[in-house]
């Protein structure tokens, strides 16, 4: 493999080197959070976390563990960089992103440190492309302060059942209202659009419901425009965990299985819209 024949000396300049036999395993998951241009990369010895934010109200994190990569070497405890995600995705698909089995783009991603570009070596069928993406001043991701100890309600659903609901959501509704309750309606998604309201109720005994742990009735509204981007992650995922904390903040965690059967996670945090005064 040409990518592994890089000289040892060259390798040593980099603080971060990550090799991936199939670049699609990275590009797919980045696509799922690609609703804004700027992505903050935080690399630790555990792996890579990519963060995208919008309006200071929604944050998406994609976690790609170190063992997803064929090689993942990091010389510091923490390496942070920020790049334009659209550009990165274009580079990852520079060979067309063929989905034909047996043809895949190999990737080596290198970073020398602050002020240097992110360098991608991409190879497919013996052709190597080198992309250098200028890095930006890394911003500090918002801390949504979502602790599992504050979680009031949590359900885990098979994505299949939520996909259907999200594909049918009434987009004329400004908000998506999520009700979680230990009693009926248990787990409800509601929209209030031009033509009326719609409710999707999931029974807690449904075979789609893997876990149902709701302690108190909570009804919160979230801006549809903020939640809509999470549909991409939902489409990729096989399970989704929906949690709300005592402040009404929403956490959506998607379990994504890649082409090679490995598991990654995508997480969305979203802050609630105005408080609900009346029951509609």
């Amino acid at each position: 493999m040409p990518l592994s024949t890089q000289s040892q000396a060259e390798e040593e300049q980099y603080v971060l080197v990550a090799n991936l036999d199939n670049a699609r395993n990275l590009s797919n998951i980045l696509k799922a959070i690609g609703f804004k241009d700027h992505a903050i990369f935080t690399a630790t010895p555990n792996g890579l976390k990519v963060t995208v934010e919008d309006s200071k109200c929604v944050q998406a994190n994609a976690f790609i563990q170190a063992d997803i990569f064929q090689k993942f070497t990091i010389k510091e405890d923490l390496v942070a960089l920020q790049v334009n995600l659209t550009v990165l995705l274009d580079c990852l698909n520079i060979f067309g992103g063929s989905t034909v089995a047996g043809i895949s783009t190999a990737l080596r991603m290198c970073y020398r440190g602050y002020g240097y570009p992110l360098t991608l070596f991409l190879e497919e069928g013996g052709v190597v492309t080198v992309c250098k993406i200028n890095t930006e001043e890394p911003e500090e991701p918002i801390d949504f302060d979502f602790c599992s100890s504050n979680v009031t309600n949590k359900v885990i659903l098979q994505s299949e059942s939520l996909k259907e609901a999200f594909s049918e959501l009434d987009m004329t509704s400004e908000v998506l209202q999520i009700t979680m309750s230990p009693s009926q309606p248990y787990f409800r998604l509601s929209t209030f659009g031009n033509s009326g309201s719609a409710h999707y109720d999931y029974s807690k005994d449904s075979d789609m419901m893997e876990l149902f742990r709701c302690n108190e009735t909570q009804t919160n509204r979230y801006k549809m425009s903020l939640l809509k981007p999470s549909t991409k992650a939902l489409a990729l995922s096989c399970k989704v965990s929906v949690r709300t904390d005592s402040r009404g903040f929403l956490s959506l965690q998607y379990l994504v299985r890649n082409d090679d059967g490995q598991i990654c996670f995508v997480e969305f945090f979203c802050c609630p819209d105005v408080e609900v005064d009346e029951d509609l």
């Binding site: 259907e164 609901a165 049918e168 309606p185 719609a198 409710h199 999707y200």
Partner: peptide, 11 residues
């Protein structure tokens, strides 16, 4: 199926 209940209240 799966106990999903969809309610549409249309004006």
């Amino acid at each position: 199926k799966h106990g999903l209940l969809k309610t549409h209240n249309l004006s």
